[in-house]
Design a protein around this nucleic acid. Structure first.
Lengths: 112, 112
DNA sequence: ACATAATATTACTAATTAGTAATATTGTCA
DNA sequence: TGACAATATTACTAATTAGTAATATTATGT
């Protein structure tokens, strides 16, 4: 086992995946799809984004392979293609919570 | 336990953290710091980015709390503040590898 | 075929930001 | 103090992109 550092190309691929998760609207879509597939309209209702934007972001997530798409009559249902995303989000949420708790403990310790 | 969906503010915080990891240069810095703290000059040498850019990206990572900074004489050493980052990167790398392997298997299965 | 509902696309604006050259700052050593 | 090395900052450009209104597409039911 050598240095095993990622090369430029690989770094770019990793960055691209992180970038997909670096937008609140897309994260909102993903967390809403966590339990079950939803139609575009349902996602629009669940978030507070406009239809055109949701459609756009769904397209981005689908093109990247993070979402699956299935037509059912007049509706189009999207679903999570790889639940690994939620492991990622759990890690990040865990870190943020831990940081916040440390912050809180620090503040409390200053309260004499 | 209710719906437990993140609100707008929380989504923004999560997105911000992902955004820090959504740039190849910053990822390159982080992976170089994985083994040990490095000075700015060492990081510049290890990557193929200019000094001013490395310094800028180090500042961003430090301001966000992902890196620690320590002066030693003329040099300034940066180090990873929270190794959780590597868990994140490992997940992403794992996914990309798995996807690539599936792709490869598919191609092979088509080769008669 | 027509009206309607659901979704996608287009064209655009505003905001963000990576990278950079030049310059400023900070520390070391003589 | 002055020269030098390491790092940070500034000011700028070019590129990317979220959000949006308007419009186009696609499917359904009559």
């Amino acid at each position: 086992m050598a240095k095993s550092l990622l090369d430029q190309h690989q770094l770019k691929a990793v960055a691209k995946l992180f970038d997909l998760l670096a937008e609140p609207t897309r994260l909102d879509i993903l967390q809403n799809l966590k339990k079950a597939p939803l139609s575009v309209g349902q996602i629009v209702d669940a978030t507070n984004a406009k239809q055109s934007n949701i459609s756009k972001q769904l397209g981005i997530l689908h093109d990247a392979g993070l979402l699956k798409r299935e037509r059912q009559g007049n509706l189009i249902f999207y679903s999570i293609a790889d639940p690994m995303i939620f492991d990622l989000c759990a890690l990040v949420c865990g870190k943020l919570r831990k940081d916040a708790e440390s912050q809180l403990a620090l503040i409390r310790s200053l309260g004499k």
